[in-house]
Design a protein around this nucleic acid. Structure first.
Lengths: 135, 135
DNA sequence: CTTGTTGTCAACCAAACGGTTGAGGAGGGC
DNA sequence: GCCCTCCTCAACCGTTTGGTTGACAACAAG
């Protein structure tokens, strides 16, 4: 998934109306008109929202005569979850390292008050380069 | 997590520079100046980006003399993952229902070609109201 | 062929966004 | 006290965004 694509997906989901459309499409495919009906904005506005969702890859349109049944592409959610988890794991790993450093300081009998020790440890581990997640 | 908050988080992550800041903060806390250094935009611009991240709850700032060490609030990722998973599960459940309907049609000896049966089934299950996820 | 339905395209508008420059507040260090 | 560093606030500017209205393409049905 390209950076460009990720930007588009996040931007698409930043709008409450578009999130609502996604929520309804999770329950089943629907035409543009059906999707537009509940809102008190013009059909064109909803059509624009759907174009944004389509450009982001979250949604596809099929053709059935004049209708354009819209379908949610749920795989995109998997990619987003993966993107998020990368940083979740990285942050978690950092905390585990923090605990190790704190334990080490404790074993050394460091006389610092606890909050100061925590700050010191945080600074100490911050500059460590993450070889495990880079490349 | 309020709808407003979700909008802010998605909007915050829609910008590549802000995603990059988040990535670097996952490796450790950093001051505004440290964060701004790698980019060839003004410090003020980065400060604005950090304000957006802060308003979204993804980040907090502490104070150390003139410095403002920025810290990533990784719990927000958990909330986002949960938000996404709701629709992932819902869409998945729909496909399972689709398979059931197809199996039923098959047992009835429906003579439709496979693609048409799939379309028909999709339309058939779409209007079903999701009591399990509503309310 | 004419009419009605469904959806998109085009032009426009106000508000928000991402950037700039300039000014200034808050806090060490001399 | 004075200066220098770190950061934010304010004003401004061009572009993007979410909405509008009006025109029209595509198709089904009469």
């Amino acid at each position: 998934m390209s950076e460009e694509q990720i930007s588009k997906v996040f931007a698409a989901l930043a709008d409450p109306t578009r999130r609502d459309l996604v929520a309804r499409l999770a329950a089943g495919d629907a035409t543009v008109g059906e999707l537009a009906a509940p809102y008190n904005v013009s059909t064109q506005a909803v059509s624009k929202h759907l174009k944004v969702l389509e450009d982001s890859g979250l949604v596809t349109k099929a053709r059935d005569a004049q209708r354009r049944p819209v379908h949610l592409e749920a795989q995109v959610f998997d990619l987003m979850t993966k993107w998020i988890e990368r940083y979740q794991r990285q942050a978690e790993a950092r905390y585990q390292r923090l605990d190790q450093v704190l334990a080490q300081l404790d074993a050394d009998g460091t006389p610092l008050p606890h909050d100061a020790a925590r700050d010191k440890a945080r600074n100490a581990i911050a500059p460590i380069n993450e070889e495990g997640t880079a490349s």
